[in-house]
Write a protein that binds this DNA or RNA. Sequence first.
DNA 1: CCTACCGATCGGTAGG
DNA 2: CCTACCGATCGGTAGG
Lengths: 217, 217
Amino acid sequence: MSPRRSVADARQTRAVILDRAMEKASIEGLDGLTIGRLAADLGMSKSGLLGHFGSKESLQLAVLDAASAVFAREVVARAGGTPAGMSRLVALCDAWVSFLERGVFPGGCLFTAAAAEFDDRPGPVRDAVAGIHARWQEHLRRHVRQAVTDGDLPADTDSEQVVFELVGIVLALNHALQLNNDRRAPERARDAIARLLCGRLLSEYSGLPPGIPGIRA
Amino acid sequence: MSPRRSVADARQTRAVILDRAMEKASIEGLDGLTIGRLAADLGMSKSGLLGHFGSKESLQLAVLDAASAVFAREVVARAGGTPAGMSRLVALCDAWVSFLERGVFPGGCLFTAAAAEFDDRPGPVRDAVAGIHARWQEHLRRHVRQAVTDGDLPADTDSEQVVFELVGIVLALNHALQLNNDRRAPERARDAIARLLCGRLLSEYSGLPPGIPGIRA
DNA sequence: CCTACCGATCGGTAGG
DNA sequence: CCTACCGATCGGTAGG
């Protein structure tokens, strides 16, 4: 074994850097993340770290890629066993809430934090953040439309409206968890989602009989 | 007139600084705001600017105070003419959506941006942000409860749940406006709010007849 | 992967 | 309100 590291070692180092960078970025933001402090945390030099990415912007893009992979594993894959359409939609939303409830990223949703930081700064990072959000919302929309096709949602359901409201519920959840440490927020989010998608918990929420005729056959 | 400025002049200068600081903070965040660039924007020296506040943290707290005053004027006061309870709640929500639609802060909701930045950083700024959010949500909750008392919402309405969902809708609106420049988002937000509070637009949204029995008498 | 360094900028202070 | 300055830290580079 020579002191020169192999390609595999370099890849492993890169993965370790990105794991730590995701944690820090969820807490401090993608821009609040600095190369110097990240390197110090990892016990390596700034230039040693930067060598893996080339620039801070490239590091930020790599962090977004890595975080997308985490989201795919912790949310999308967990719902993969259910049939497309309403079942998948419900499973995706449940996994999404669980993702925040479990605190997969210690500082809350990295994408939400990145969106707030970069929404007014044109460039590759903003484009990447917007693309991640667009792809996820399209993914949800696809299953809303499938649910409509299957007759599980009314024929004239506005899929964009449903996704808009789902996003809102989860943003409110992230907000309540991060700012107020409100442990009841995940239940509130699940109730809101169930009511939006199925009217299932409307009875518990407002005293109405379960099921709004027309929403759920 | 001596070259030494009066107390009134100093107060005016402070107000001008805070106006510009609010604009920049809504775009760059409360921490992204730097004394040097803010001073350069205003054509004054860093130390001249810092003399009005003492430290960056004090400037951040002053910006939050000033932004609260803007919110009180642009949202709360606009709904002040309507009776407490359901009417006021609807007017507050409409003014809230309008506040974002009109772009009162050029970079979107300063409070949302500040919450994302400071939710993981204990200290006076985080406390101020959390306090502003808590007061606003309590304000909304008060009118939800009044609406229940008046019989405009069901007796077992969970006021915290309603406020949680209202916050989510407006967070989704801010998100859609800032990240996607989605001009239809304000209408989506109004639809979602109306459906949440009154079931009024449920017919347009999902084909149901207007009014869910029990939600709105 | 390191040390050693660069110019720029940060928040803040001294002194007037 | 200014100029002039402080130490610290930023992203990044040179050279090995």
